[in-house]
Design a binder for these strands. Structure first.
Lengths: 205, 205, 205, 205
DNA sequence: GTTTAAACGAGACGGTACGTCCAGTCTTGAA
DNA sequence: TTCAAGACTGGACGTACCGTCTCGTTTAAAC
């Protein structure tokens, strides 16, 4: 009834092989077959744990990513955001970036996987920003009513860059984007009058 | 030296079959083999034109998209942007949306294809926004120095939504996003003084 | 290290399908693809066993031929040879003959396959004749020093007929050829004196 | 109505390319496509002249072979035969041998081609031997009633060797085979009594 | 200790698609 | 009408993975 317990070394071997192979051949160029061969593990053992290549990769990624995720708290929204963005952007280089792109690719073609990715990776990042915003909101730095939109403005351009030009994710771009998000955060999220009369402020009063 | 010229009817048949099949089985469920069978065209003929399934789809998509692409000119940035976004968002439903997601997935896994996608699809959309921004800038509606950032703020969240939750792309989200972009456009793109005099809040008053 | 053992039923299915298809469409008209389809076996499974269509056919042929191969022992060389030749010639009709011709064709174009054909089919037939000759030699019926030449005289004309006119392989031709081989067997394999004395004709008298 | 006449240079180019390619890649490894490419001639031009690769090769071969074909007339059957066989055997080396094997392969799988091969190549060789035999018969050197059988004994083993072991076609084998044919030629083609009584000669008397 | 049951490697299995090659035909423009 | 060029359909090639299925062996908990 109990049977032989799963060997944790097998899990590790799979993760290790997966990451190596992505580094060498890209996500596309990796097959379950190759992971099995490289890891010295049978295909059966992999399929016992993961339903698809995507899940293998997500597992490998999560095992790595779990360590990080800082939520700076400097008392200043701009500094907090900037720190988070710089950290996040710089993490999109190398194998890690390749893996992220691959996971996104998988999610784009498979709703169930999209769900999974959201749960295991995306949500945590969004929550980190949400926490920063909550603190800033208490300090009166945020006028905009929707955290979610602000978060979209943070990560949307990041994934967009990952899609078209990963090289764009520099510290400079992080700063530019931070300032843009700040501008929105300070706004009320409703169109101001375009007449620009000095009394426009009164409409809110 | 001349040889028999390519038959344009073949190009059309390929495009038509590709779109039909994506509609029926999704991008994943389409194979070059199936496209050839459905279109009554030989695989050779397809490979002569396109290097991969992605290119076939991109070509089919581009042939459709070429017809549209409105650049509203109402004399008001908010209205122009909103119109474009609503139009674009509503175009991400159904087969077209599925196709866009698939193309993005492909681009995420293949740099060469990413390039191609940029050239044939992305650039045109960005240019449409760029034109709208240029007109608004002349009218004094845009203070932010970088068109590119503003454009990133328009399309970044769109692709981000396509990745995680395509259902998010409603007219309402278009409006919310438009206002956010406007807020940034009106800003100077540089952080406001953070000297944090207790009266700083009054500047808005 | 052990792995799942090969399924002998697969071997059989391949052989059966191969023979059926040769009967229906001729060797030329058979493809690996068709063998796989007809046998309900994957192409992989076939290529795991055989490197080419030729090998598949040879295997099928050999599996059949293995059952037969009589070596008559009547105590008389002529009768033994005649029986073997009649049996062999009559076996070159219908599908079997077509198959033999095809195997020969394959061998003519591929040295490695020639080798294989020799090992698996030809050698056994030659050995059958060799055995007959050995017994006859003990009885003093064979003067010619070379078994191999005598065997060549048996099978050479057979393949030659298969090449140019398979219909020639009648019982009558078997008899004629048998007598010719006998004539050589009784000779010493060296030219008789050609001193050409006018009386040399008398030696036969 | 007359149109442009065919360019004989095209015929030559085809033949030349065909022979070159057979030499380089073997008959198997030659395609109409390759012949066209190598010769700088369009596929159309080839198909206008020849119905198949086999016919191209037969044409190329015939253009070469037409020059030779000696029918020695030394006044002695053995010498005539030996000369012919040595000449013929030595001609089966190199490209020529490869071509002959290929033509045979083609004939084995295609009755129409077999016919053609017979007409254009085989018949002439048989006739050469037939002529030699006729002269010998007049000199009383041939007792056997059937020229055709004797000819089969000459060429059968040759093709047989070509099939299984072309290296066998040495001058020595030519001699051995010649002697065997001679033995048959001197026989009556009917089985002698095996009792070997000295009176056996009388049965014919 | 012995059972017992699951995990393990190896690798065969039916499928499906891949991207390539060649056959034989057709279509262009030039000679 | 031929010619070189090259597009065209059709079909098979041999390969690569997929996810599943035996095999024989190993391992640890339950008896």
């Amino acid at each position: 009834m109990t049977g032989r317990p799963r060997d944790p070394a097998v899990d590790d071997a799979i993760r290790r092989a997966a990451l190596e192979l992505v580094g060498e051949h890209g996500y596309r160029g990796v097959s379950m077959e190759a992971i099995a061969a490289r890891s010295g593990v049978s295909k059966q053992a992999i399929y016992r744990r993961h339903a698809s290549k995507g899940e293998v990769m997500l597992d490998a990624q999560a095992a790595f990513a779990r360590t990080r995720l800082p939520t700076p708290d400097t008392g200043d929204l701009r500094e907090d955001l900037l720190a988070l963005l710089e950290e996040t952007f710089s993490g999109q280089r190398g194998v890690n970036g390749a893996l992220n792109r691959a996971l996104a690719a998988e999610a784009l073609q498979d709703d169930a996987f999209s769900e999974l990715l959201n749960e295991r990776l995306i949500r945590q990042r969004r929550d980190a920003v949400r926490l920063i915003l909550a603190r800033a909101r208490e300090r009166g730095e945020v006028a905009h009513p929707s955290d979610d939109l602000l978060i979209d403005l943070v990560f949307g351009p990041m994934w967009y860059a990952l899609l078209l030009d990963p090289g764009k994710l520099t510290a400079e771009y992080a700063a530019t984007l931070t300032d843009a998000v700040l501008a929105v955060a300070r706004s009320h999220g409703r169109p101001e009058s375009r007449t620009n009369s000095p009394t426009s402020g009164n409409t809110a009063g």
